[in-house]
Nucleic acid binder design. Sequence first.
DNA 1: CTGTATCCAAATAGATACTG
DNA 2: CAGTATCTATTTGGATACAG
Lengths: 127, 127
Amino acid sequence: MNLENTDPSLPTFDDCLKKIRAIDDTMELLSGKWKLSILSRLCYKPMRYSEILNDIEPLSGKVLSRELKDLETNGLIIRCVSGTKPPSVTYSVSDYGMSLRDLSDKIAEWGLQHRDRIRSSFKRSDL
Amino acid sequence: MNLENTDPSLPTFDDCLKKIRAIDDTMELLSGKWKLSILSRLCYKPMRYSEILNDIEPLSGKVLSRELKDLETNGLIIRCVSGTKPPSVTYSVSDYGMSLRDLSDKIAEWGLQHRDRIRSSFKRSDL
DNA sequence: CTGTATCCAAATAGATACTG
DNA sequence: CAGTATCTATTTGGATACAG
């Protein structure tokens, strides 16, 4: 028994694999627990290193450095140094990073409806 | 200097935090390198345990079991046992799991355009 | 066939101290 | 202030053997 579709209008297994690769590309960029969280905060307003560190409670400096570097390397955020002393470094979202905004909105949207679903299923099981 | 917006039509910082929590909810569900990959395959066709294992090369049985269990616990896939001997277990995507399809399409879409961007930036630097 | 249990290797995260 | 280096703790993954 072969459950694969044979209708040419439906996606082929090859389409499926292409999609998986594309998903992996995105997820690799966004992997790391904090990337989207950092990005969302920076979408709201530019922030300094220490500000982000204080804002995201259980986040160590080492991890933050790495996440920021990853995001910058991928062109999603911009690191801006004002050469004062003590130094001040401000991170902001690049135009390209902003192109993730629609996606992160969709992700958030699904999370919200999922939470509603969980809540209402609890209610049902309370009966 | 406070860079926060004060325009009431723009999102507040509280909106921003809510969004981040919603994103975390989604990402927690989809975390684990293989969840979306498994889900996408199952969207294409129902598959058996061993079939998935053979299909995704660098994936161990232990990890696959856990991922499948997670996905099932969250109601995203359905585990169907035909009590033959030897046993046969088929996994398929639930209606609820299908609600992730739009999202995973968006994720794939962004990945594709990102790949194009990378490629064209390589071309430019080759000049 | 479909898993689980165990053991071991590798990756990741936190804390702390330290540099420019 | 903005990081980096180091060490250690925790998490995660693979391989193998084994059970139902």
